[in-house]
Design a binder for these strands. Structure first.
Lengths: 111, 111
DNA sequence: TTTATTTATTGCAATATTACGATTAATTAG
DNA sequence: CTAATTAATCGTAATATTGCAATAAATAAA
């Protein structure tokens, strides 16, 4: 069906999955890494840097903006994008605590 | 096109994205969380616990196994699944260092 | 060997994603 | 106002994902 049954999962599970999903594309990872590297830049810079068409980069930026991991500021005819630090740190914590839930002790039951 | 241009990205970007992509579905988050909770269990348990059809759970298990975040051990007619601790910790570090690349200082350029 | 149990695979329908050309805003410069 | 610049949106093609019924495979129990 191609449609996720989100209603059978907790809000926490859906939220974490939706963030992971957005991070689940190399172009979006590359966009984030470049934004961190240069602090802030415009869409056209990312088009050059990454090598995808402008509408494609614009679409990826939209998804990153949707979950709030980046934000854009209008500057004349262009839009200056950068990481949304507050949300970044919140997501950092969410992933950290997700990975931290695994006990450090060895499995005994099987595996 | 629905096809990702992986060749224009670094191996690191593709790897991180592919892990995030697998984590980008609430059913797979739920499977992981249940495996951590009960240490190890079989496919049938997850079908009951999560409420998706057996082939669907089996497919999600396959994707989790593909990136090595879980592993399965044959036990009679059933297969005992659990977290692959070594890979788990490797991925934990990868995500941690990804999130850590953002400097803690304030943006000055824009945003 | 037959039956039961458990999981994987196949095949399919519905929907989502990725990518881009063409076009449309929106703003600035002249 | 007009032209130039920049980014968003629209439309569309190709492919991927999600989910499940039906079936197959693999092992254990009788």
């Amino acid at each position: 069906m191609g449609i996720t049954k989100s209603e059978i999962f907790t809000e926490e599970q859906n939220k974490l999955a939706s963030i992971a999903k957005v991070l689940g594309h190399p172009a979006r990872i590359a966009i984030i890494q470049h934004l961190i590297k240069v602090n802030a830049c415009i869409c056209g810079d990312l088009v050059e840097e990454i090598g995808l068409a402008q509408p494609t980069i614009s679409q990826h930026l939209k998804e990153l903006k949707n979950i709030g991991i980046i934000k854009g500021n209008i500057e004349g005819t262009s839009i200056c994008y950068c990481i949304d630090t507050a949300n970044w740190q919140a997501y950092q914590k969410q992933f950290a605590s997700f990975f931290d839930t695994l006990p450090k002790v060895k499995n005994t039951k099987c595996c």
